[in-house]
């Protein structure tokens, strides 16, 4: 079986396939695949619907694709829109369009330039967001970098958290080593224009609890902030701060109680 050369399928126009093992799978029109798919390369330029699981080396989606099962892939690029009902296991994920994943996501490098919404938990080595991300579960990563909008219903746990706020960011709990939250400074003409139209949205981060070793926070609303060295910048509204080594508070910040432990 190993020796036989794997075949390719190419669906142009509209077609169906029962799945199987292939080298390259290409969809240019619309395709419906009824079974599991194992292949080296999956490329969809039109629309595809896969009823089973898929295991592939690279997946590139330029049109729209719906996976009903689990997706296991080394390198995935989504330029159009993708729905995954199962879990996603990947090395590299790049979302430039939009994607909705109902299961958990496990990866090494996750880059979001469009919008991604995930119902389960996310774990990765690196997460880089310049768009919008919604996570209903927990998010664990070594480095979390965001220049956009995120909403995490569970815990955001990362070694380094670097956030430049845009509109309303939200996480239930945040924990990590170094946490930096800043307001976007380089307001270019275009961004100013966007802001002009969305003036009711303030750049702000809301969290119940933020815990870490070194914290720098701006425009953050939280119930409790705990850490070793804490610097509270302008626009913060924090009910309670517990710190170990040092605490600095900007005159433009509102802080309830503070306690050195």
């Amino acid at each position: 079986m190993e020796q036989t050369q794997l075949k390719n399928i190419s669906i142009s126009g509209s077609g169906t396939s029962s799945g199987g093992e292939y080298d390259q799978v290409k969809v240019n029109g619309s395709a419906h695949i009824h079974g599991d798919l194992i292949c080296e390369q999956f490329k969809c330029n039109g629309s595809a619907h896969l009823e089973g699981n898929i295991t592939t080396n690279t997946a590139k989606i330029n049109g729209s694709t719906h996976f009903e099962g689990d997706v296991e892939v080394k390198e995935m690029t989504i330029n159009g829109s993708t729905d995954i009902d199962g879990n996603l296991l990947c090395d590299e994920l790049k979302v430039q369009g939009s994607s909705t994943i109902k299961g958990n996501v496990k990866g090494k490098e996750i880059i979001v330039r469009g919008s991604a919404s995930i119902d389960g938990n996310v774990s990765s080595d690196e997460i880089d967001v310049k768009g919008q991300v919604k996570i209903k579960g927990d998010c664990e990563t070594e480095s979390f970098e965001a220049r956009g909008n995120f909403k995490i219903d569970g815990l955001l746990n990362a070694g380094t958290i670097d956030v430049e706020l845009l509109r309303h960011c939200e996480a239930k709990e945040i924990g990590g080593e170094n946490i930096t939250v800043k307001k976007t400074r380089d307001a270019s003409g275009f961004k100013k224009l966007i802001k002009f139209f969305m003036s009711n949205h303030n750049d702000q981060l809301t969290a119940e609890v933020i815990e870490g070793d070194n914290l720098y926070l701006e425009h953050t609303h939280a119930e409790v902030v705990r850490g070793n060295t804490i610097e509270i910048g302008p626009g913060c509204d924090i009910k309670r701060i517990e710190y170990k080594t040092s605490l600095e508070i900007d005159p433009d910040a509102k802080v309830g109680t503070q306690e050195k432990i």
Partner: peptide, 20 residues
């Protein structure tokens, strides 16, 4: 959690890292 950090002499960062 607070008592644990004190008793074990570790930081929030370490605890979150080990959890991860």
């Amino acid at each position: 959690k607070k008592d644990l950090l004190e008793e074990a002499n570790i930081s929030y960062g370490q605890l979150y890292r080990w959890k991860r």
